[in-house]
């Protein structure tokens, strides 16, 4: 796609691509603690069927994934592995931080071993608060991310400009400020 490489995309083509990208999100499930069970219930169960949103929670490898859900307690020992996971994912890539632990350390705010938020390692697009979040909250995070993808400027993203914008302005499910 020479047009994308040059960062010049006709608007209709951008809309078409964004529509396709937003409804074929391959989600890598990075479950680290009890939120992993909740993520499995939200993504795998027929009650909260996530495939109807165009989300495919079954990539075989981070290299196939568009989106990773970091759900659970991130420890300092796990942090390098998460960074490697993120670097293995192809651009454009998105991160959902699920649960209080991945957002900010949660109840382990004073622990000697817990990283105080996965956003200290990798940029986060969507914060889903809760301990654990309801499945509806996680799915709302996915939907909000899809809306953002639909309005994204692919050319800017390709040039690396959109990425900075996302770091400055992450989505918080349910509202609220991000410090």
């Amino acid at each position: 796609m020479g047009l994308v490489d040059k960062g010049r995309m006709p608007k209709p083509l951008t809309s078409l691509f964004n529509l396709g990208r937003s409804y074929s999100l391959w989600v890598y499930q990075w479950g680290l603690a009890c939120c992993a069970i909740e993520m499995g219930a939200a993504f795998g169960s027929p009650r909260y069927d996530v495939m109807r949103l165009g989300v495919i929670p079954l990539p075989a490898s981070p290299r196939q994934a568009d989106l990773v859900v970091i759900s659970g307690t991130v420890t300092d020992k796990m942090a390098p592995a998460i960074l490697r996971l993120y670097e293995q994912m192809p651009e454009p890539k998105y991160v959902i931080s699920m649960g209080s632990c991945a957002n900010c350390g949660g109840p382990y705010w004073d622990s000697y071993s817990v990283t105080k938020g996965v956003d200290q390692i990798i940029p986060v697009d969507v914060y889903v608060p809760g301990c654990p979040p309801r499945p509806e909250a996680l799915l709302e995070g996915v939907v909000l991310l899809q809306q953002r993808i639909k309005n994204e400027d692919m050319g800017a993203r390709w040039r690396g400009e959109g990425h900075k914008a996302i770091v400055r302005d992450p989505i918080v499910v349910g509202g609220g400020p991000v410090e």
Binding site: D76, W109, D110, S111, Y112, S113, K116
Partner: peptide, 15 residues
């Protein structure tokens, strides 16, 4: 990692 976290005199820096 430096220190031994389950020693009683290990400081929790966050606190």
């Amino acid at each position: 990692f430096e220190g031994h976290p389950l020693r009683k005199d290990f400081p929790l820096l966050a606190r």
